[in-house]
Amino acid sequence: MDLISLSAVDLALAALLVIALAGVTVWARMGLGRSLVIAGVRTVIQLLLVGLILQTLFDHAQLGWVALMAVVMLAVAGYEVMARQQRRFVGLWGYGIGTATMFISAFAVTVLALTTMVGPTPWWEPQYAIPLLGMLLGNTMTGIALGLDRLTQTVWRERRTIEGRLAMGASWSEAVTTMRREAARSGLMPTINAMAAAGIVSLPGMMTGQILAGAPPVEAVKYQILIMFLITAGTGFGTLGAVWFASRRLFDTRERLRLDRLKAGRHT
């Protein structure tokens, strides 16, 4: 491993670029300077903290600590999914649907990959488990958030269509098919695009990282392919599950459309 270590001066030089950008936006009265600086400071603090936590975790590799870390990551991702919904479900469902499906898909795929494909010993070795889970959760989160948001928006907008189909004797799932398809598509599109563009338009971050760290490119590529497929499966199953559960929740046992189970939108 011929990793070149970065000094504080190197980081400070990069930070100067961001400060320069902030200066320009202030000068041009674009009102972005403040948020740029705050976001930059957050990056430094959050990443340093995570670095420290990961270092500690790697030093004291115990299943309990790894599990705790995983649960915290899941809780935060679940909150992010909820916060990105314009019309979220009322009550615990708003948090529950996204978090539960994310848990099932991302954790299942991670554990499967660790035990059968990557195969570190022990299988929960934090050096592999945490980054893998992080990448899966991050992408699944985006997919589920996009899918749920699209579902609730289209159902809200097309409630007359749905009730028209119900009145014609359609079942709840027939009545909501087209909205469900659209939601699943919008949740999966970023992942499909990323797979299609990988290596040509963009060099995926993980592969770039491994190459920078001195890994042979072909090894890095193999890891990247594995990760891409895992991410696609995790995001895909997670999004489909979330969209299915959410659309079920929009109807009651008498198959009535229950928009009262959604909160009013933030921007109506």
Binding site: R160, E163, R165, L166, A167, M168, G169, S171, E255, R256
Partner: peptide, 18 residues
């Protein structure tokens, strides 16, 4: 419910066409 709505048909003032 499906059977009920086939037998008790609701035709709204503005019918929906999708």
């Amino acid at each position: 419910p499906v059977q009920w709505r086939c037998q008790v048909a609701y035709v709204p003032a503005e019918t929906a066409w999708w």
